[in-house]
Amino acid sequence: MAVLVLADHDLGRLSPATPRVVHAVAELGPIDVLVLGEGIDEVAAEAAAIAGVRRVRVAQDAGLLGQSAEALAPILADLAEGYTHIVGSAGAVGRDVFPHLAARLDLMPVTDVVAILGPNRFQRPIYAGNAIETVVSNQDKHVLTIRASAFRAAARGNEAAIEPVPHGDVAAVAKFVAAHRTEGDVPDLATAQIVVGGGVSVGSAEGFKLVEQLAAWLGAAVGATRAAVDAGYAPNDWQVGQTGKIIAPDLYIAIGISGALQHLAGIQGAKKIVAINTDAEAPLVKLADVALIGDLFTVVPALIGELDRLGVRR
């Protein structure tokens, strides 16, 4: 048994999801990490430093830059023979590539895995996390995506060998036109230790700045509801929930968020939840560990002032 993990990376850096994926599959067998892209020497080096990695395999090609399914899947498929498990994170690239790969290999994938109970026994949430399915895969090979937020990161300090993998012509079918990146150096939402989230009740993009200010004060990532994103107050990659990112921070501070089922789907893994809301009956207030009933426009600035007084700043 051996495991092939596809590294997640962006702008030449390894994503924080990958050490978590490696940790998640540590019991399944020796782990090789595959890095596909161009200008990814640093990604490969970072991958080689993850504890538990046997070797890092690298293919560089301009056709891999967009990380499209058509470009990545053939390389993964060619390597599949040597592995019992082919694994990625359940981020946007993994969700795009792994079902495509699975169909190509005539395998039924198991995606959004939140617990690995054995070599072919996995748990995954369904119905926006309102039920957990335990599945047994009766196949001889398994294509998996892992929810990084459900696992801790593997330690660092390894020096695995880095080897090139031969590959044929890379055919990226989709031509890149433009990237629309959310600028700013807020921490990665899916793996952040603290997340501050805002809802549509902030009223404007200007109002959402209050949420961002508290996040910046706490060194936290910023989350948003679909309603806030749809209204144009926050970028789409901040959306948390069934359709957005899944988070599992130590602390989630939800500001003016009602707690719709689809939003709750994204925050079930949070250790502590704090809610600020004018409505004591809001579902999120009901399940928060600590809630304050009040108007966010006065509470949030006062909260920053009070944290300042207490000397709490990260």
Partner: peptide, 19 residues
Amino acid sequence: RLTIETVSPPSEREGGRIV
């Protein structure tokens, strides 16, 4: 290709306190 062994509810969150 898969057998669904069981489907279970997620662990319930306990509500906390209002400050």
